[in-house]
Amino acid sequence: MTEPVTVEVGTMGRVAYARIAPNEDLVQGVEKLCLAHGFRNAFVRGALGSLVDACLGTRDGKFIQIKGPAVEIVSLAGEVRSDVDGSITASLSGVVADTNGDVYGGPFVAGSNTVCMTFEVTIEEWLPSEKSIAA
Results as ranks from 00 to 15, higher is better:
Phe43His: 14
Ser82Pro: 03
Pro69Phe: 00
Asp98Thr: 09
Phe43Ser: 14
Thr89Gly: 01
Cys55Ser: 11
Val84Pro: 07
Asp85Leu: 03
Leu92Pro: 01
Gly49Lys: 05
Ala70Tyr: 10
Ser91Thr: 09
Val80Ile: 12
Thr99Asp: 09
Ala54Arg: 07
Val84Leu: 10
Lys67Asn: 11
Gly46Arg: 10
Ser91Gly: 02
Leu56Val: 15
Gly49Tyr: 04
Asp60Gly: 05
Ala47Gln: 07
Asp83Met: 13
Thr58Asp: 11
Val95Gln: 08
Arg59Tyr: 05
Glu79Thr: 08
Phe43Trp: 15
Asp85Gln: 08
Glu72Leu: 05
Gly101Leu: 09
Ile66Glu: 04
Ala70Phe: 10
Gly86Ala: 02
Arg45Pro: 03
Ile64Cys: 06
Asp60Leu: 02
Ile73Ser: 06
Asp98Leu: 01
Lys62His: 10
Ala54Lys: 03
Asp83His: 10
Thr99His: 14
Asp53Leu: 02
Ser87Asn: 12
Ile73Glu: 11
Thr58Tyr: 00
Ile88Asp: 03
Pro69Asp: 06
Glu72Lys: 11
Cys55Met: 10
Val96Ala: 02
Phe63Tyr: 13
Ala77Trp: 05
Val74Gln: 13
Ala70Gln: 11
Cys55Glu: 12
Thr89Gln: 10
Val71Thr: 14
Val71Ser: 07
Ser91Trp: 03
Val95Ser: 04
Phe43Lys: 14
Ala54Phe: 11
Gly78Leu: 02
Leu51Tyr: 04
Val52Pro: 00
Ala54Glu: 02
Phe63Asp: 12
Ile66Thr: 10
Gln65Asn: 13
Asp85Met: 08
Thr58Ile: 04
Ser87Lys: 07
Pro69Thr: 09
Pro69Tyr: 06
Leu51Val: 14
Glu72Ser: 13
Leu92Asn: 02
Ile64Gln: 13
Leu48Cys: 13
Ile73His: 01
